[in-house]
Design a protein around this nucleic acid. Structure first.
Lengths: 210, 210
DNA sequence: CCGCTAACGCAGTGATTGTTGCGATCAGGG
DNA sequence: CCCTGATCGCAACAATCACTGCGTTAGCGG
């Protein structure tokens, strides 16, 4: 039926996204505004008109791109917490984890980071939490996988509850031992974790292994 | 000057609080309303008029008793997370911790509890976090202190980084090993912790000790 | 049982939020 | 270079929120 359309559009159902210059500029400006406002005012007063004003953008624009504050915060968190920390390569698993845990601890000591994390978790629920730590889990998996490929004894599929020595821990175990304490202290207590303490967590995770 | 007042009031500066029947009833009703609303609607839509309507109370009453939503949430969290879990007494530290960690894990598996925790942390910042875990830290300290008084070898003030066997861990160590993973999984990931996994955390904390 | 006052309900008000329709502008492709 | 349409700014709108006096109710001590 009248397939004499000009372009290759099928039925106009899915509008082609246009991540070009202006859109990217607006996006970046809004993201920065969220971070700045969250850094100086309580999360309760963070509202879309306030963000728009701070970003130099009309509120309607923000309302259209991010339907709710929760989605906006999840987007900002995912963008902020992705690529901010690089996976180190010191040659040994212990060295990698110690360096990485220290970097994470330093990052979590920044009040602005804490404010953004708390707001994302509070408003966006599990999705917000995921946006904050998804990249960390990938980094952890990458380091453990590399160690396993490098000289890892075995993948630790069947070992007793005691934990065989010289076994690369799983991602879950490492997350429990490292991300757990790091993020728990950051979110629930006022005191930030010190670098030396973060290294101690790695030591406790790898105690009696390689 | 004219001390012929009827009562013993000094200068009328500090109004005597009146935690009587009606006030207590209103307080309980508002607390329950917050929990119920948080359980079925996103935290973003939690507003003081909504809470008041749900509680069958006039909004001005809520505005006067809790100046901001953050304080209200912190109050609700502190009330909800205090006294909900009793310190077990099984005779051994390992048994106490396993039982307690299991109870905490079960509590954290409740979606309503998670919603309240996330909202409190997101709105009230560090204070909200403290309101959620202050009681847990006290319970942990109580169990460790009791073990130390019971047959604790020493208070572990000066031991090497390896960790002496047969030493009662400090509150910080126990919080890192238990509360860290428990609350991290609950808040940042969608999957709740299973009881068996919680017991495993205790095993890892006490590995190579008593 | 009576008096005092803290705490609540009520009505009214200004400010802010969230939404919608329309015209202007700029990115991306022919 | 021009054309298409995705994206933005603008203005008006209804809805809701947060706040403030004032009268009334009810807890608490005498």
């Amino acid at each position: 039926m009248t397939t004499s359309q000009h372009s290759t559009r099928e039925a106009g159902a899915t509008p082609r996204p246009r991540p070009g210059g202006r859109s990217a500029r607006v996006r970046a400006s809004v993201h920065r505004a969220v971070g700045e406002l969250l850094a100086q005012a309580p999360a309760e007063s963070l509202t879309i008109p306030a963000v728009a004003t701070r970003a130099g953008v009309h509120p309607t624009t923000v309302y259209r791109r991010w339907p709710t504050l929760a989605e906006l915060l999840a987007d900002v968190a995912a963008s902020r917490f992705s690529g901010d920390i690089v996976v180190p390569d010191t040659g040994s698993l212990r060295g990698d984890l110690e360096r990485w845990a220290t970097d994470v601890a330093i990052d979590l000591a920044d009040p602005d980071v804490l404010a953004l994390m708390r707001a994302a978790v509070g408003a966006a629920g599990p999705d917000g939490g995921d946006a904050c730590v998804a990249d960390r889990h990938e980094q952890l998996t990458a380091m453990l996988e590399r160690e396993r490929a490098r000289g890892g004894p075995d993948d630790g599929s069947d070992r007793g509850p005691g934990g065989d020595p010289a076994t690369v821990p799983s991602t879950d175990e490492a997350a429990d031992a490292l991300l757990g304490p790091l993020y728990y202290r950051a979110v629930f207590t006022a005191r930030p974790g010190e670098p030396g303490w973060a290294r101690g967590l790695v030591g406790r995770l790898l105690a009696g292994r390689g």
